[in-house]
């Protein structure tokens, strides 16, 4: 007689429930109308079921985004959990759409759902990938731009996970500075 192995039928719970959002840039609609919730999940298996089912970022059209956020946090600056926060931002060159974008995005998702930043994971609100003609962007959003220790932990671990060379710096910018900037660049509060 066979003994059932729980490993084969029990899904693996995640620390958090996550929501995947999709943004499609339709100029005839408002920004919020263009933002759609795709699905929520709270197990490893349900994450993969969703991930395996959707397009990779490199196949999305220009102006499209994916956002993965903790359940209850909307992927916008205005959300109470985001408004004091900021983001670690990775700007990719055009060549990297073919070489790195999809791999980086998957790695980002695994960092989030696996709680890779230990206690600093509590500071994570979500992650965003923007597909843009000038170059794609990846970001991890955190909840409070003053939490230096947590932000530095997240930045260092993230850079390591993506295998970014140590001499290539990535920057953290507050949403406040990003939303009020006048030029095309926002100053970095932190770099790793």
């Amino acid at each position: 007689s066979a003994v059932a192995n729980p490993e084969q039928y029990i899904k693996h719970p995640l620390q958090n429930r996550w929501a995947l959002w999709y943004f499609k840039n339709d100029k005839s609609k408002s920004w919020t109308e263009n933002l759609r919730l795709i699905a929520k999940f709270d197990t490893v298996e349900d994450f993969w079921a969703l991930y395996n089912h959707i397009q990779q970022p490199s196949k999305l059209g220009y102006g499209c985004d994916y956002c993965l956020f903790k359940d209850g946090i909307k992927p916008m600056w205005e959300d109470d959990r985001n408004k004091l926060g900021g983001r670690w931002l990775m700007t990719l060159n055009k060549q990297q759409r073919h070489n790195d974008l999809d791999r980086y995005w998957m790695e980002t998702l695994l960092c989030l759902i696996g709680e890779s930043f230990d206690e600093a994971s509590d500071d994570v609100c979500g992650a965003v990938v923007n597909v843009r003609p000038k170059g794609d962007k990846l970001a991890i959003w955190t909840g409070n731009c003053q939490n230096r220790d947590a932000i530095m932990t997240i930045g260092q671990q993230y850079k390591e996970r993506l295998n970014i060379p140590s001499k290539a710096l990535i920057g953290y910018q507050s949403h406040d500075d990003t939303s009020s900037k006048s030029g095309s660049t926002t100053k970095n509060m932190y770099t790793v």
Partner: peptide
Amino acid sequence: GTRIIYDRKFLLECRSSP
């Protein structure tokens, strides 16, 4: 409380499991 942490190796193994 305890935090449920999964490393990338485990997460990737779950992708191909039945």
